[in-house]
Amino acid sequence: MLREAVSGVVKLHGYIQSRTDARVRDYPLMHSPVQMTTILLAYIAFAVYAGPRLMANRKPFGLNRAMIIYNLSMVLLNAFIVYEFMMSGWATTFTWRCDLVDTTTSPQALRMVRVAWLFYFSKFIELLDTVFFVLRKKQSQITFLHVFHHSFMPWTWWWGVTLTPAGGMGSFHAMVNATVHVIMYSYYGLSAAGPRFQKYLWWKKYMTAIQLIQFILVSIHISQYYFMERCDYQVPLWIHLIWMYGFFFFFLFSNFWVQAYIKGNRLPIANQKPKQNGSTNESMTVMRNGKHCENGNSKHANGNIVMGKVKNI
């Protein structure tokens, strides 16, 4: 029984390697799914179990300078990714409709392969978002959705880059996501810089609107596939998954918008002053990647991951 199971795993591993696009096979973390899956499992274990217990009897680290450098670096990295996506097709030869996967070795195709891998690799860098939360003892901000998003995104993108590195219309959501991250990491950098920059963060509530616009754009673009008379996109499964992903997160952020800005359940307290750690002493805190939580209201114990309802994200 065990021998058959091992044999099946070996065959699956061999099949995956045989299907891996030759243009991306030698890139870091692309040789097999074992490496990236191990990293992501270790990340989950650290975020949920090891990290909180490591910090349980320690004072939170003051990491403002490191966070400023990190956020600025992420702004520059995501801006570069957006530029490369534009130059490798979206601002040059793509039709913005049924753009197929480019299987050639042309300079433009190889450029798209490189930026697709760079976007994938940037998701591992973004795991530092959670590391900063743990070291600063902000465990209430590490919700189930936060951990799920940070682990699920790079795991799924490994398969996309493996099979379709020059992803055609399937790469649009990555370009949009990188654009949003330029804006969001700019916000986080200003927030970490201290209270003297709080006056420049008046656009805080529009962060959710930016996220909603992202999901609308992605859903509209990918939905074209279902109304075209003919579109021979090589891996239709990616189309369906992108559409479901966009719809799922649009629902979550729409719910937050209603709760916060229509029903007023999470509007900030106007007479409270900002703290020194780069965050604000308000009832609502904007988390990385657009997720939100309520300070002091998230249910957690001994630093365990928050398993609240969607409205507490």
Rank of each mutant, 00 (worst) to 15 (best):
F94H: 10
T143D: 10
S279L: 11
E84H: 10
Y233V: 06
H13D: 07
H150Q: 11
T164V: 15
S191Y: 00
H240V: 08
L217Q: 07
E126Y: 04
N297W: 00
I39Y: 01
F251K: 10
W96Y: 02
R19V: 13
V34P: 06
W155D: 02
H150Y: 06
Y225H: 07
G170D: 00
S171L: 12
A42Q: 12
L118D: 06
V9A: 09
T95N: 10
A66Y: 06
K273Y: 01
P195D: 13
G189T: 04
N57E: 04
N271C: 02
I305K: 13
K275Y: 06
L2A: 10
P195T: 13
W257I: 00
T179G: 12
N71D: 11
C293H: 03
K199L: 07
T103R: 13
L252E: 03
A50L: 14
Y225P: 02
F46V: 12
M207H: 05
K204E: 00
H240N: 12
R25I: 15
I39Q: 03
H13L: 15
L12I: 03
E4K: 14
H181C: 04
D232A: 08
V306A: 13
S186C: 02
K123T: 05
T280G: 07
Q17V: 10
G308K: 06
A45H: 12
M244V: 09
N255T: 08
R65T: 13
I16G: 08
L267V: 00
R3A: 14
S254L: 04
Q272L: 11
Y200T: 09
D21V: 11
N64P: 01
C231P: 03
Y226E: 07
M175K: 11
E282L: 08
M67R: 15
P52M: 15
Y206S: 02
Y261K: 03
L100C: 08
T92F: 00
Q198Y: 04
S171I: 02
L190S: 07
N64G: 14
A109C: 12
R266L: 04
T93C: 07
Y43Q: 08
G246W: 05
V115S: 09
A79V: 03
N57M: 03
N304Q: 13
W202F: 04
W158K: 15
C98V: 09
H13P: 01
V235C: 01
Q214T: 09
P107E: 03
G264Q: 01
M153P: 00
L241E: 06
M207E: 05
E126K: 11
V9G: 05
M153R: 12
T95L: 00
Y233K: 11
L135E: 04
E229A: 14
M87Q: 13
Y27G: 15
W90A: 05
V24A: 15
K273E: 14
F247R: 01
H292T: 08
V101P: 15
F251W: 00
A116Y: 05
N78L: 10
P236W: 00
L128H: 12
V161Y: 03
T179Y: 00
T20E: 14
M36E: 02
K205E: 05
L163T: 07
Q108V: 09
V182Y: 02
D102K: 07
Q272A: 12
H150A: 12
